[in-house]
Design a protein around this nucleic acid. Structure first.
Lengths: 254, 254
DNA sequence: TTTCATTGTGTACAATAAACACAAAGATTT
DNA sequence: AAATCTTTGTGTTTATTGTACACAATGAAA
């Protein structure tokens, strides 16, 4: 076994790990970041182990930074997946073959298929700022449109579904757009984000009225030109008011 | 070491465990069930390990049944506590002494102080139906008024605080009274439950109107006599409508 | 200059939440 | 038996919030 891998395994928890559902928003679509395992066509969520002297939250921050280059972003636990057999939704043969392609034969039985519990974290990031970076056990790291996600390894499809539910709930009482949009954005863009996540149409006028009523947006004098038709105004979040609103537990109703 | 203990340790996960915050409601007060460790004055939440072939959720159900005799009740994960050192809020010497009193000297270092992550579950139970039963490592199991909880072992005070926050949130979109009240109850009792959990006063008339509007309560022809003053009517949850409401994700607003 | 699809804006109506008061019940006291 | 006490039961009015909806203006493209 690769000595670096051996060291990693020895200095991390064995029974618990972390998986991150990283959401991004681009071109009116909600995306998740996925990894393709070395030498395979199998995809999974970014994840990793927790170092012995590291908290679960710190591990999640680290994993997120390693995959995206980003720090200080919206990141939170949403569920801990503790089923006795988190592999049962997949043909064991196929899964084993996949893992062996990546890790080699001696590795799989002892370490990987052991009973494992995963703490699910959800992150919201600015699509444009992400530098998608593969793991040491993956060949490729890229965004997938949420509705086009393939069948993933382990129980990772369930995880995305659960994360999406949590995201929708969050959206109802937290101004989530801050983390998913670029610094400057238009009202229609913000609305499309909400419509995409909630999967329903919203009234343009009422949406704008509502968003402005929270008093966390700043209307800029500029417009977004270049698109076809009338140019919309740009807005940005007023960081100070935004933070205060989060602190005070502003109640969003969308 | 006690061979039964040894067997238990060997057939369970070592790095992850479960702690349950069990809420009850009695005499207008919100309570939690706590355990006193053998030979000590130290209290903690009920908890336990996860058997290798058991899911985390199954383990939580089992632990709850062992401590309360109850099954099929409101029970859900609310947070996973993954700090690197969940003991740091306590004097190490004192904690070690406490654990040694219960487990003996050889035990502590190897097994108990190892890095451990705990999945926090929250349960709501009918106070009157609980048969509070100690563990093999505890002398006493009893209810504590939530505002009178002493300093607990490990990070269990944090856990209760976090569970309470989750409970308050839940209360806003789930008809939680069903699990905390006896089969028959009066409207003032239901209101007091809400007021206690939310820690704020509610208007009697508006509260009743709201509760009845959800159409999950059945007004019984009986009244609760015996108390001083005018006897209030009894109500009970209409289980069928209640289940349907939960299913459809009824939105409570209190 | 005309056309086009989009943006910007305000008002009327409906639904929901909040405030509020008085009569009646049952136990207790006189 | 009557009076007293505190709680319960109930409905209306007002304020707030949410929903529906239409037309003029903009910038790009034809």
């Amino acid at each position: 076994m690769d000595p670096r891998l051996k060291k990693y395994l020895e200095s991390t928890l064995k029974e618990v790990s972390i998986d991150c559902t990283i959401f991004g928003f681009h071109a009116g679509e909600l995306k998740v970041l996925l990894l393709r395992w070395k030498g395979t066509d199998s995809w999974s969520l970014p994840g990793g182990r927790i170092f012995l002297e590291e908290s679960a939250n710190e591990a999640a921050v680290r994993i997120l930074r390693e995959r995206t280059g980003l720090q200080e972003i919206f990141l939170q636990q949403f569920y801990t997946f503790g089923a006795a057999n988190r592999y049962k939704n997949f043909s064991p043969d196929e899964l084993i073959k996949t893992l062996e392609l990546t890790f080699g034969e001696d590795f799989f039985d002892e370490k990987l298929m052991k009973r494992n519990i995963s703490i699910g974290y959800m992150a919201l990031v600015e699509f444009e700022q992400v530098v998608a970076t593969p793991d040491w056990y993956t060949d490729e790291c890229r965004w997938w449109e949420i509705s086009a996600v393939p069948t993933l390894l382990f129980d990772h499809n369930d995880m995305i579904e659960t994360a999406l539910k949590a995201l929708r709930q969050q959206l109802s009482y937290q101004p989530i757009g801050y983390n998913l949009l670029p610094e400057k954005f238009t009202m229609p863009e913000l609305q499309r984000l909400y419509e995409t996540i909630l999967d329903k149409q919203l009234d343009r006028r009422n949406f704008q009225k509502l968003m402005l009523s929270y008093d966390i947006l700043e209307k800029l004098p500029e417009k977004r030109t270049g698109g076809a038709f009338k140019a919309p105004f740009l807005y940005k979040f007023d960081k100070e008011k935004y933070d205060r609103a989060i602190q005070e537990g502003i109640t969003f109703k969308v």
